[in-house]
């Protein structure tokens, strides 16, 4: 192993490329476990909807479609903005990376703000499954199952969003300290993978929550 490694290369790697490949592969491995984590939620949705289609659809009709749709547009745009930042640092433009990170984190905060507003509306409408529930009769049980799925899924996604916002701010901070260059910016790539995955999870949750059951 060479003693003359790049400034950011740890001793156990042959060179900076080896270290970058390992970090990116490590994030992909983590994301593979996350796919199975959220896969359990999707399986719960399939199972509950199969046995309670009418109640599940009645529950879905109570969801706030406009907030879910605005949040979908926000997250798609945030991945685009972060992608611009990645392209900027590949061209050595650190300042643009910082602005893109701040904008991405800002969009993430707006997403969470809208999510809090949506939860507030849901609770006002008596859609918390453990309390006095809005739906009655034959649809009540399936409706409760839908709203359990809704709060668990959106809650877990919101936690992932919070982690993503902190990670993107951390990238902005490191970029401000001039730690990234066109030749070395592996953390920017790794955090970008995580952010796009969180976006991906919302893209899958959106039809499960807001679309499939609406006109059933």
């Amino acid at each position: 192993m060479s003693e003359n490694v790049a400034p950011h290369t740890h001793f156990q790697y042959e060179d900076a490329r080896h270290q970058a490949d390992s970090a990116i592969a490590g994030m992909w491995l983590f994301l593979a476990t996350e796919v199975l984590f959220f896969g359990g939620l999707i399986l719960a949705w399939i199972f509950c909807r199969h046995w309670n289609p009418e109640g599940f659809a009645a529950g879905a009709k109570e969801s706030v479609l406009w907030i879910g749709t605005v949040n979908l547009a926000l997250l798609i745009t945030s991945s685009f903005v972060y992608g611009l930042g990645q392209a900027a640092i590949e061209a050595g433009r650190v300042r643009m990376l910082i602005w893109c990170c701040l904008l991405t984190a800002g969009i993430g905060v707006v997403f969470l703000g809208l999510k809090l507003l949506e939860w507030h509306v849901d609770l006002d409408e008596n859609l918390w499954p453990a309390g006095p529930f809005k739906l009655h009769g034959a649809e009540a049980d399936g409706g409760r199952l839908f709203w359990i799925f809704y709060f668990v899924a959106t809650g877990l996604h919101a936690v992932h969003m919070l982690v993503g916002i902190v990670a993107v701010c951390w990238i902005a901070l490191r970029a401000r300290r001039a730690e990234f260059t066109a030749d070395w910016h592996t953390p920017v790539t790794v955090v970008g993978l995580y952010w796009s995955f969180v976006d991906m999870v919302w893209i899958v949750l959106y039809p499960l929550i807001y679309v499939v059951g609406r006109l059933s």
Binding site: D21, A25, A32, V35, L36, G39, L43
Partner: peptide, 26 residues
Amino acid sequence: FMEVRRGGALPGAFALAAIFWLFVLL
């Protein structure tokens, strides 16, 4: 955006494994 094809063989293998096990799970 995630450029899974550009990441090399290992990220591609992890992504395919995730899809495969998701199909098994579902």
